[in-house]
Structures are given as structure tokens and as C-alpha cells.
Simulated assay, not measured.
Amino acid sequence: MIVMDDEPLALVNMEKKLKEFNSIEVIKSFTNVKDLLAEGPSLDFQVAFLDIEMPGMNGLEIAKLLKEWNKNIYIVFVTAYRDYAVQAFEINSLDYLLKPISKARLETTINRIQELLHLEKNSTPIRIQHKPILKIQCFGGFVVLHDDKAIHWRTVKTKELFAFLFSNLNSHVPRDTVLDALWAETDYKKARVQLHTTVSYLRTTLSTLGYVDVIQYANGCYILQLEDFQCDAHNLEHLLNSKMETGKLDIKKAEALIQNYQGEYMATLDYPWVTSKANFMNTQFTLLLHDLVEHYTAIHDVKNLEHILLLTLEHNPYSDKAIQQLMKHYIDLDNRASAVKVYNTFRSTLVADLDILPEHETTELFNAISVEV
């Protein structure tokens, strides 16, 4: 690691404290930017302890420079002032130490560094395996598993922030958009502090799972970039995109997705921001059901067709089109009693929930068969 502080006495003091840890090696210390620029690029280091208050380039600016040299360098800020905490976390720093630094507090930081470096060292064999490490279920709720075990989130907001960023995966999300989504009712200054604390918690959680530096902050935006994960919602999108490109639906993958379907997108979560994304994903799922209806109709697979039609109505309980398809299916099977039964249930649901009646075409279809039952 390297250490930088413009005050020689403070630099010596920090070096002395770090040398008390046998696992840490300080390869170079700097008191000015000129020396860092001259020697830094040729040094092999993984961690930088930086004082924030320095002349010329301050520690925050130097951290950005180091990240340009190597995005995997871990930054630890050291300062006598609390005012830089938010900016420090935005640069994706590992930690933020306030002077005077106690041995116990420094030990916590060193332990975090060792843990992350150990995970980084051992991450390659895991990545060689083609089995996704993270399993993310979005339909029916939001469940995240690591090696088939549910992830423990430090706070409720940590989970929600991950859900929000994952819903915008690989997209730059403005900081204020995140604040409006998750902390709309909180004072702006307090919300910013809570956001950056939560980002720190989330980064730590993901880092301990082997996902290091997957959340970046630049130009006022956050971006989550993940690899090696499996997700039902992403499988659906890929399935439909592939169908658009090739003109052919992968039936086996579609059936597997249907079999594991747990309900509407993040249905059990009371997140105000989820509505728009949920509407889109639920529409995507309806498109998949429609494609399967066409497929099973074409190959005269009566059993699977009925299953998909029932699931379509369950997914769209107020849809006249869905009930009409199911009724016509029963009529084709000469099972008019079932057609009448599902109509009556549909009508009762509309009246009870929406205080409306079925569309004229649906009622006409019912009238045409009810006298024959």
C-alpha cells in the first residue's frame, strides 16, 4: 500500500500505526503530488491511505486519479473533518477514518482490506465455473440468493437500494432520481447522508460475496454492473428478445420460466418506484403467455393450452380477451359447463372489484352457450 499526507509528522505517525499489522506493507509514502505523479504509476500497490486536506490536489482528486490508473485500488481516506464523508463515499472509497485514529478503528479497516483482497485473490476459480453465483427472483417478490442461501441485508433500505439499482442494471441513474425514489419524504441533506451510508453498506455486502466495485458513481450518477447471476426477469427479457431476432420462441426455456413463475414483478414489495417497471415486466410476461397459447394451439396440445389460458386469466383477472379465449377453448372441447362457470366467476370478480360488467362481446358469447347447457 501507499500512504499520503502533506504533514510529515502525521505521515510518520500513520506509517507507525500501519506497521503494527504484520500483514500490511507500506511500500511508499508521499507528502506531495509531484512525487506521486513521478513514482506512483510504476508502483505495484492495492491500497492507498490518503489525507483529504492537502495543497494542490486534495485527497478526493488524488483518489480519482488513482482510480484512473487502476479502478481496483482500494481507497481509505484519513481526515480531521467530517464534511467530506459524502464525497468520499461517492468516489467509492473503502473507508473514511477520522483523526485521531484509534488502533481498534484502524484494525477494523485492515480486516476489511484483508477480507476483500482474499476474496479477490480467490475469485478466479469461482468465475471459471459457469454456474451463476447470484440467483435473483423478481417475480412474486425480490429474493436474492448466494450459493442458494438468502443474503442478509444490513438494513431494509440496503435491500431496496439493490432492488432499485438492479431494476436499472447497467444504466446510469442520477443521484437525485435515487433520492426521489427511496427517500422522497426525507429532508434532502439527511437523505443524501442516508443514501451514501446505504451505498456503503451495499458495496460491503456485495464485496464480501465477491462482487467488488460493481457500483460506480460518476458525473452525478450511480450504475450497477453485474455479471455471473441468474434472474427470472432477465431470462424473460432475453427469451423475448431472442424470439424477436430469430422469429422462433425457445419453448423449453419458456416452459421452464412458466413453471418457476411466482407472481407479478416484485408483487409483495411496497416500493413506490416499482410500479412502472412492474407494469412493463408484467406486460412482457403476458406476451410470453400469448406466444405459448399460439404454440399449443398450433400443435393441438389441449392440456398445456388450458394451463396457459388459466394462467393468462390469473395474470390478467380483469381481461375480457383472456376470459373469451378460455371460454372458446372450453366450447371447442364441448365443455360448455366449464365455459359458463369461468364466465360467472369472471363477472362476479368484475362487479366486486371494479363495479363494472363484462364487455358486450363477452356477454354475447356467454348468452350463446348458456341456453344450451
Rank of each mutant, 00 (worst) to 15 (best):
M1Y: 07
V3F: 04
M4A: 10
M4Q: 04
D5S: 07
D5F: 00
D6M: 07
D6Q: 10
E7C: 11
L9T: 13
L11C: 12
M14I: 12
M14W: 06
M14E: 06
M14Y: 06
E15Y: 02
L18A: 01
K19G: 09
N22Y: 06
S23D: 14
S23T: 11
E25Q: 14
V26M: 05
V33T: 15
S42F: 11
D51M: 09
E53G: 08
M54I: 14
M54R: 09
G56F: 09
N58E: 08
G59L: 12
L60F: 08
A63C: 08
K64D: 10
L66N: 08
L66I: 15
K67M: 13
K71P: 12
K71W: 06
I75N: 02
I75F: 10
F77A: 07
R82L: 12
Y84G: 05
Y84N: 08
V86I: 15
F89C: 05
E90D: 10
S102K: 04
L106T: 02
T108P: 04
N111C: 11
Q114V: 05
L116P: 08
E120H: 13
Q137I: 07
G141S: 05
F142W: 00
V144Y: 03
A150W: 04
I151V: 12
I151W: 02
I151R: 02
I151G: 03
K157T: 05
K159N: 03
L161C: 03
F166T: 05
N168Q: 06
N170D: 15
N170H: 12
S171D: 14
P174Y: 05
L179C: 04
A181I: 00
A184R: 07
E185M: 07
K190F: 12
R192G: 10
R192P: 00
T205P: 01
T205S: 07
L206Y: 00
S207H: 13
T208M: 14
A218K: 15
A218P: 08
C221M: 12
Y222K: 01
I223P: 05
L226V: 05
E227C: 09
Q230D: 15
L236H: 08
L239G: 00
G247D: 11
E255M: 12
E255A: 08
I258D: 12
N260T: 12
N260F: 07
G263C: 07
E264H: 13
Y265N: 10
Y265F: 14
D270A: 05
V274E: 01
K277T: 05
A278D: 07
F280P: 04
M281D: 01
M281E: 03
N282E: 01
F285P: 00
T286Y: 02
T286H: 03
T286E: 09
L289Q: 04
H295M: 02
A298Q: 11
V302D: 01
K303Q: 14
H307T: 13
L309C: 07
T312F: 03
E314I: 01
S319V: 02
Q325Y: 13
Q325N: 12
L326K: 01
D334R: 02
R336I: 13
R336N: 10
R347M: 09
R347K: 15
P358E: 06
E359S: 12
H360M: 13
T362S: 14
E372V: 11
E372F: 14
V373W: 15
